[in-house]
Design a protein around this nucleic acid. Sequence first.
RNA 1: GCCCUCGUGGCGGAAUUGGUAUACGCGCAUGAUUAAGGAUCAUGUACCUUCGGGUGUGUGGGUUCGACUCCCACCGAGGGCACCA
Length: 783
Amino acid sequence: MGEYNPKKIESKWQKTWEKLGLNKAKDFDKRKKQYILVEFPYPSGDGLHVGHARSYAALDVVSRKKRMQGFNVLFPIGYDAFGLPTENYAIKMGVHPAEVTKKNIEIFRNQLKSLGLSFDWDREINTTDPDYYKWTQWIFLQLFKKGLAYQAEIPINWCGSCKIGLANEEVINGKCERCGSETEKRNQKQWMLKITAYAEKLLKGLEKVDYSERIKTQQINWIGRSEGTNIKFKINDKEIQVFTTRIDTIFGVTALVLAPEHELVKNIDDKNVKEYIEKTKKKSELERMDLEKEKTGVFTNLYAINPLNDEKVPVWISDYVIASYGGGAVMFVPAHDKRDYEFAKKYDLEIKQVISGGEIPFTDYGELINSGQFNGLDSKTAIEKINKWLKDKKLGGSAINYHLRDWVFSRQHYWGEPIPIIHCEKCGLVADENLPVELPYVEKYEPSNTGESPLANIKEWVNVKCPNCNNDAKRETDTMPNWAGSSWYFLRYCDNNNKKELADKKKLDYYMPVDWYNGGMEHTTLHLLYSRFWNIFLYDIGVVPVSEPYIKRRSHGFVLGSDGRKMSKSFNNVINPDEIVKKYGADSLRLYEMFMGPFEETINWNTQGLEGCSRFLKKVWFSFDNIGESNKEIIQKLHYLIKKVGHDIENNKFNTAVAAMMEFVNSWQENSLDKKHAEMFLKILSVFCPHICEELWEKLGNKNSIFLESWPEYDEKLIKKDKFELVVQINGKIRDKIEVDSEISQEQAEKLVLSSDKIKSWLIGKKPKKIIFIKEKLINIVL
RNA sequence: GCCCUCGUGGCGGAAUUGGUAUACGCGCAUGAUUAAGGAUCAUGUACCUUCGGGUGUGUGGGUUCGACUCCCACCGAGGGCACCA
């Protein structure tokens, strides 16, 4: 066989494959399609991470296998290139973000190619390309026309360090997701997308897709559906709507508490109230979210009427009430709510028990007391009856609320898609249909501290004529968040060069939905939810053929440094895939990334483990010197291997598939293997380690690529063994193992076992009570 | 506080889903080869043992002929949500 030289082999085959065009998906091909998708990378200056390689290698295995199984596989890649890191880098180094992006994409492309990933390179996309973001803008306009994109003056999360407004999802524990500095609330006019209008659809859609359980539950929790009751309280001549999940406690209401941001609060002319509002405004998000802190509040001098018993209760203000949920007002039931109880204790408010069953505060369901006509009912029945009562009197009724908030869609930055809206004094907000609205090429793109986008300074770009009335008008200067481009990219792959539509409807019909989508757990409540939202919307307006974009979603675990920390220059624990490829070859890297541990779990990098995989490939290489006769045993093992590897790949269990192949090669070293069966083994390994297998395939005298071969079939009959080791247990403990015929019956086995000397010695003076026989496994004698 | 995932050798981890615990890989030890090191190959590698066997999958119970696997309680780790009324 000669020397195994991965460097030489790998570049040779990468060039050949590119020439052959084996990895191209063919539109409308008669074969069944299979759309395999990996999250496209953000082309950062750090280059490809071994974590990217893990996820991409895994889905490359899947794609290659599906191709060999006769599917027309679409396995595309592209670049999600708008975003802050590029902009920050560009500002620091004085290079235009477009230049930085171009350079980084080149680096990424070369790195991806050096791993031998079987992407369809003809379909590459780049979210910063005007031909691409034209359609991102187009989708925005469709949302705008349907009233799902709107402007609102809202308190947004403002990161003073990045000088950017953040969505709730981008704020982690009150801190900016990117830079970690504390965020503050700041009122600003922002573009919003009404994802809340899709809460129910996003929830319902989860019932028909195959996502890992933890992904599903995380989305369900994030949407946060809760069933309850809306009820109206009167304050003078105004009506205040309150949401509660415990309307059965309505007779226990001893106050009404409003959020400091509540509409009604603005009109209260009271020194104490004004002081309190000022104080809460100054509190940072982090302070306000602190659960340990003591609750504070202020009495408004107003009273509200409880519609059920016409009782007059005081109205308070407190910042433990969330403005953006359930109307920003709560009915105060200290006897049956922990938070209300704390507040009542502090301000000495009345505590009135209306549910019997335990110590106050009692938060479980129970039997109603002190509740007028509803006394004696259990909570559940009471909720039904009171809801009906409210509905009949037109005072409210059952209602559903969601934790999900609308998506803050504006960014005051340069490096993003311009929002294609024109502000006209006469016509108001006008859609600019002349797409793409291109980013002007400028020298200065530093964010301003005023909260305005840097685009605002470019007068010749900002000042335009209104498309409606031709009067002087101004462009919107906010750009879209980095989540915009990735919310629909899977559609563009189906038809990436289309100039007339985001993608041809027939091609979407053919390729969509995505059959298997892999990505990081960190995108579950962001990208995954956003892209489902956009797709369902596009389905509703007839642009895409399916409502749910992804049939199957799985996620990979992170690859950490060998010290168990996140790979980072500051920890000096970064593994550069280029160096690994250079030293060991892409095949070893790919194999190790599949073997290192369960695919969905986080794992630490271990270079010695990688060396083991490299050793294995050398072993495989030299095993091909050992081609000769096969015995029955090794053929049996090979057929079992084909079954096992196929099954494991479909179930994301790449690590055990690799282990099984290693086991097989160990047996091969003890026995020889004939050429036909050695080729079958090679086909299985080829999806993991394409280069070495293609080379060996050629060395065996084959003219065409191994990837034109079909995936080997196993024969169940050949897997079956004639003999097996029967485990003999006494009272569940192993006492012996006997080699017996596979077809042995219970009677025969009993006879055999009871006559064995070893077993006999255990049975002296005892009588078997019961004998359990499991075919091809064991026999257990119970004494 | 709530939800999810998970606790198995010195380490990463297997266990056909209730049927031989520790597959596969790493590491380590001994030996072979070598002037030597590296590389390679071979053998061994959970614990205790009076060599009969006994004990072992975070802890304590339970179900079962049989439990890493199922049930209950607890302890610990990781992730998500979090004053959502």
